[in-house]
Design a protein around this nucleic acid. Structure first.
Lengths: 330, 330
DNA sequence: CCAGGTTTGGAGACCGGTTTACAGTGAGGG
DNA sequence: CCCTCACTGTAAACCGGTCTCCAAACCTGG
């Protein structure tokens, strides 16, 4: 509607056009106290007429940017679409928006750069960063971490019940009569015992279940390639063993799908996360659902609570449910 | 390294600690002219010591935020991972970073909100927004549009050769002897003839190829559900026709995968975009590769050029190549 | 030794909002 | 009729940077 020719409309333009002060316009914008209905009316129509939109940068400098940052560990991680979906749903109807930050390198950098005044709060999946470092970060900007099994004081966490989920997979495979069950997981640094990452827990549960079943000798752990990110080769290597496994428990669906690419329907394969792909008839992957959408929504909601003043930490654990499909029915 | 207890370190803190002016620190930060080696050294070590990081908000207000915004039409669009990958690659080594903005509602809103001073440039897939509106937007912030077949003066475009790509699919299917070939595409509003959207072009080419082959009577167009976003039902409906198609040309891989879910291996299915999923042995989908990674990289590079002063528009067309797989080999 | 040019560093305006402190105004109570 | 107080709206500081002068110091050659 406006006839701007390059520069955009500022709050001063609106104030001038409406014949009021900048402060008045700001009050109207923020629904702040001390505005008469008459002025509100006048200012709002002026805003409409001029097509004014407040600058996020200027707002962020003093108040808030009304943006929540969501860190994405790697492009193409399918589990993230559930998280994003949930987060979007949770902020719908609020003035907040979700922006996504792909981690192009070390997670520290991505988180720092999000914290550099760009967003009012951060949701992140960063199992590897140091807890003390995160507590420090959380002192500057509210933080919700996904999938961390620590219980920090400074930030909130949303986690799946990895113990129950992994155990459900193992019990399912064992009940089917499998004895040579292998585990396909992330590189070493993500599964350090006791580190509290989801994959370290799933690995421990795998080991424990095998031992409990008297199958300690059959424990086989294969790992995704560090650089490429592909688990196909690792799965293929399992098949080449003298006594190849009859079932593979993959740490998440992306690796499970890679495993299917390598072993086809010759070996039972189970995944984790119940991504949309798992339900596809041609994939039809047994997988653990951990309410990804709900987790995303919870995380965003917690962030909003923090922004409204909550200071005591909250820690939410999502329940898991095993979805049995044909990939384990051989 | 620093012992901050809430507020973060500002440029004033650095200036004071180093015993220089704020302007001096700013110069060092931006590698600006007029800094002696001695001062640079002193300031840099102070920055290091204090763990100072410039506020993006403050920077954006005056200069640039060093962030490029990438609009994502809908969460889970697999083609986007290629675009993001390419864009990330293109900005690697520059001070710029990519942030992703999921379009939670109308694309106008998402684009506006990106333009609200958050980013220095915008990459977007928004086939539906008005060209004049985009030209206006581009007057305020550099814009690169993906997949638009218009030739605007104000913004750059990166497009695939949809004519060649769609024709390659049709020739392939026809050469296999298929006569009842259906087209599975997006809802009406995205395929308006002459609108220049990729899907309108693919649809037109489909129609033209069918007519050329004397198969005008066999033209069948099915459309994805507007709300749900699922193409499974639409594909299933095709199978229920009195004379069901023997081949389906889907507008993109996501719909092709949906089609496979509905029709299994009973009908030949071809897709578009050659997403990572298409190459999976269990999917093994014939698809058109249009150099998605390259497109993303081109788009980001163009944006960087704009930020360095280029004003004349550029329009890049990616070449396409048909990847034939077993989904069309029945 | 001096005029003129080149570095070097700083003062201060500025970006576009938010927020605090305060002045003016009108109504209600004693 | 005066005083108090709630209500409106404004002036101005502020957020944390960038950028445009400008002054001082430092050559350099004649």
């Amino acid at each position: 509607m406006s006839i701007r020719k390059g520069r955009s409309v500022t709050i001063s333009d609106v104030a001038e056009a409406a014949g009021v002060s900048r402060a008045a316009v700001s009050k109207v914008l923020r629904n702040a106290y001390g505005v008469s209905p008459g002025m509100r009316q006048r200012v709002e129509s002026t805003i409409e007429q001029l097509g004014y939109r407040p600058s996020v940068a200027a707002r962020a400098l003093r108040g808030s940017s009304y943006r929540l940052g969501l860190e994405i560990p790697y492009t193409g991680a399918r589990f993230m679409t559930q998280i994003v979906e949930g987060a979007k749903r949770a902020v719908a109807g609020t003035p907040y928006q979700i922006i996504l930050a792909p981690a192009d390198g070390p997670e520290y950098d991505t988180l720092e750069s999000l914290a550099d005044g760009l967003v009012d709060g951060i949701i992140a999946i960063s199992p590897l960063v140091d807890q003390a470092w995160l507590e420090d970060l959380a002192r500057r900007v509210p933080v919700v971490m996904l999938g961390r099994h620590d219980t920090p004081a400074g930030y909130d966490t949303v986690t799946g019940d990895d113990h129950a989920g992994a155990r459900a997979v193992m019990e399912h495979l064992l009940s089917l009569g499998h004895r040579r069950i292998a585990h396909l997981t992330e590189p070493e640094n993500v599964t350090t015992p006791g580190s509290g990452t989801p994959h370290s827990v799933r690995l421990e549960v795998y080991r424990a279940c095998m031992a409990e079943a008297g199958l300690a000798d059959h424990i086989r752990v294969a790992r995704r390639d560090v650089s490429g990110g592909d688990a196909v080769a690792a799965a293929a290597a399992l098949l080449a063993l003298p006594e190849p496994p009859t079932a593979i428990f993959a740490g998440h669906d992306d690796m499970a799908v890679d495993a299917l690419a390598a072993v086809g329907r010759t070996v039972a394969v189970a995944g984790y996360d119940n991504t949309d792909l798992a339900a596809h008839p041609l994939i039809d992957l047994t997988s653990v659902d951990q309410e990804g959408v709900e987790m995303g929504a919870q995380a965003a909601t917690m962030l909003l609570e923090r922004l409204q003043g909550r200071t005591e930490p909250r820690h939410h654990v999502a329940t898991t449910e095993l979805r049995i499909r044909s990939s384990t029915a051989l």
